[in-house]
Amino acid sequence: MTAQSQLRLLPWTGPEGKPCFLDTDDREGFMSRLADHIEAEQLGMASELLGQALPILDDETADLEKLKLIAAQLAGALRDVLRVATSRGHRLPTPE
């Protein structure tokens, strides 16, 4: 098995909310490509959500329920984006 620092953090969690990792050197394998695809979807959805959230947050007449909903959605998107950033950061080559 590969050392923990060499495992790829996947863009989803297990049934109990624990992180999932992939142990492979094959960046073109099925699971690697699936993870790449899901990461791209998560980043795209976060970008779209931000575009939708800004007008709501700028609206001084927005009701509390609408603000709570957008805050919850933004928090979920931020969690996903941080997981992608962490995963990609761990896969950067380390200088010798």
Score class of each variant (00 low, 15 high):
Gly17Arg: 07
Thr61Ala: 14
Ser5His: 14
Leu9Cys: 10
Met45Cys: 04
Ala35Lys: 03
Thr2Gln: 14
Ser87Leu: 04
Ala71Lys: 09
Thr24Phe: 10
Thr2Asn: 13
Asp63Trp: 00
Arg83Cys: 06
Asp23Gly: 14
Thr2Ala: 15
Arg8Thr: 12
Pro93Tyr: 13
Ala46Gly: 04
Gly44Lys: 02
Pro19Phe: 05
Thr86Trp: 03
Arg27Phe: 11
Glu65Met: 05
Gly17Pro: 06
Leu22Gly: 04
Leu64Ile: 09
Ala71Met: 01
Arg83Val: 06
Gln4Cys: 06
Gln73Gly: 02
Ser32Asn: 12
Val81Lys: 00
Glu60Gly: 05
Gly89Met: 07
Phe21Trp: 15
Asp25His: 15
Gln4Ser: 13
His37Cys: 09
Lys18Ile: 09
Glu39Arg: 12
Leu57Phe: 00
Glu39Val: 01
Gly29Ile: 07
Thr61Lys: 11
Thr13Arg: 15
Gly29Leu: 05
Trp12Ala: 01
Asp58Pro: 04
Met45Phe: 04
Glu41Phe: 06
Ser32Glu: 07
Arg33Val: 04
Met31Ala: 10
Gly76Ser: 09
Leu10His: 13
Gln73Cys: 00
Gly17His: 08
Leu78Gln: 14
Ser87Lys: 02
Ala75Arg: 15
Glu41Asp: 11
Ile70Phe: 04
Gly17Asp: 08
Gly29Trp: 08
Pro55Glu: 02
Met1Asn: 14
Ala62Thr: 04
Ser47Asp: 12
Ala40Gly: 09
Gly29Val: 07
Thr94Glu: 14
Thr86Asp: 11
Glu48Trp: 05
Leu67Ile: 00
Ser47Val: 06
Ala85Glu: 11
Asp63Glu: 06
Glu96Asn: 11
Thr86Lys: 11
Arg27Thr: 10
Ala35Thr: 07
Leu7Asn: 12
Leu10Trp: 05
Glu48Val: 09
Ser5Tyr: 08
Gly51Ser: 03
Ser87Pro: 02
Ala40Asp: 12
Gln42Cys: 03
Thr86Pro: 00
Leu78His: 14
Gln6His: 11
Leu9Phe: 02
Ala77Pro: 00
Thr13Met: 11
Pro95His: 06
Gln42Thr: 03
Leu82Ser: 07
Leu67Pro: 02
Ala46Met: 01
Leu43Lys: 06
Gly14His: 13
Leu57Thr: 00
Gln6Ser: 12
Ala35Glu: 07
Gln6Met: 11
Leu64Ala: 10
Thr2Phe: 15
Trp12Asn: 01
Ser32Trp: 15
Gly51Arg: 05
Arg33Phe: 00
Ala3Ile: 08
His37Met: 15
Glu16Ile: 07
Ala85Pro: 03
Cys20Phe: 03
Gln4Tyr: 10
Gln42Asn: 05
Phe21Val: 01
Asp23Leu: 10
Phe30Tyr: 09
His90Phe: 09
Met1Trp: 14
Gly44Met: 01
Arg8Asn: 05
Leu34Lys: 09
Ala71Gly: 08
Ser87Gln: 06
Lys68Asp: 09
Leu34Ala: 13
Ala3Val: 08
Leu50Tyr: 02
Glu60Asn: 12
Arg88Tyr: 00
Leu49Pro: 02
Ala62Gln: 08
Arg79Val: 05
Leu69Ile: 09
Leu49Ala: 00
Ala35Arg: 03
Gln52His: 10
Leu57Asn: 00
Pro93Met: 04
Asp25Met: 09
Asp36Ser: 06
Arg88Glu: 07
Arg8His: 12
